[in-house]
């Protein structure tokens, strides 16, 4: 199984440890992983800001880098959703379609494709899951609290396999953290307030760590936590699943 590793731009630049954990986790699970050099971004920052028409360059690069893999995996629900919903390239539509159908967010790749049912991971801490919206409501990584439907959670399913890890319950299980791409700067006041409220929910329920499937949300939450001089830390789910 040939897996193309897609490491979104801000992870590449600011959170290389998340990329490393993702790669090492996939390798441990027996995947043949390649990180195509020269990849940049899925184009979402521009598209969500109303500039989808500028994303042809990003789309073309993306198809060129990932068209020859069985699966494409990324540690970001948001970027994966963007590719799934919006990747189109004139003259390369077949390749684009292949990618749209075969791209997976890391947790769902583990539960749905690799069908992982045990992990040799240990993380003896109290952890809160920040259920990032695009992964949850867009990709369906977990049931949405608005719907009258049976609950499930792929990230939780994986975290339950980690020895010593204690998941905390939140008052609001899937409220948005307020990152929202460029929303975080254009709507700074509301964005930060949303982030503070999410953090308070985790802190009030005893979380030592906040984890999630989207580094963008975690970066926003970490930014607020650090400003508050909080001891609570953020970790991407790959880092926990890869911890020994």
């Amino acid at each position: 199984m040939k897996v193309g590793l897609f490491i979104p731009c801000y992870i590449d630049q600011f959170y290389p440890q998340v990329g490393i954990a993702t790669l090492s986790l996939l390798e441990k699970l027996g995947c043949d992983v390649v990180y195509p050099q020269g990849q940049t971004c899925c184009g979402q920052p521009m598209a969500n800001s109303g500039f989808e028409h500028l994303t042809h360059g990003c789309n073309e690069l993306f198809v060129n880098h990932f068209e020859n893999f069985d699966y494409i995996v990324a540690p970001s629900g948001s970027c994966v959703l963007h590719i799934k919903d919006h990747l189109h390239v004139d003259g390369k539509e077949q390749a684009a379609t292949h990618i749209r159908q075969r791209i997976y967010e890391l947790a769902e790749f583990l539960t749905d494709v690799l069908k992982v049912d045990n992990l040799k991971a240990k993380f003896p801490h109290k952890v809160g899951i920040h259920q990032a919206c695009h992964g949850q409501r867009g990709l369906g990584l977990a049931q949405m609290s608005e719907l009258v439907a049976a609950p499930f959670s792929k990230p939780q399913q994986l975290l339950n396999m980690v020895e010593g890890l204690e998941l905390i319950e939140l008052k609001r299980s899937d409220e948005c953290c307020g990152f929202g791409g460029t929303f975080c700067v254009f709507e700074e006041a509301v964005s930060v307030k949303m982030g503070k409220d999410r953090i308070a929910d985790h802190v009030n329920n005893g979380a030592e760590y906040i984890t999630g499937n989207d580094v963008s949300c975690l970066m926003h939450l970490e930014g607020i936590l650090r400003r508050q001089n909080s001891n609570v830390k953020v970790l991407h789910i790959a880092e926990i699943l890869n911890s020994i």
């Binding site: 992870i11 290389p16 930060v192 970490e222 930014g223 607020i224 400003r227």
Partner: peptide, 15 residues
């Protein structure tokens, strides 16, 4: 109202 992550020594691509 937020901090930025400290820039790491190298990007994932470099690593």
């Amino acid at each position: 109202q937020r901090e930025m992550p400290a820039p790491p020594k190298q990007s994932f691509a470099d690593w």
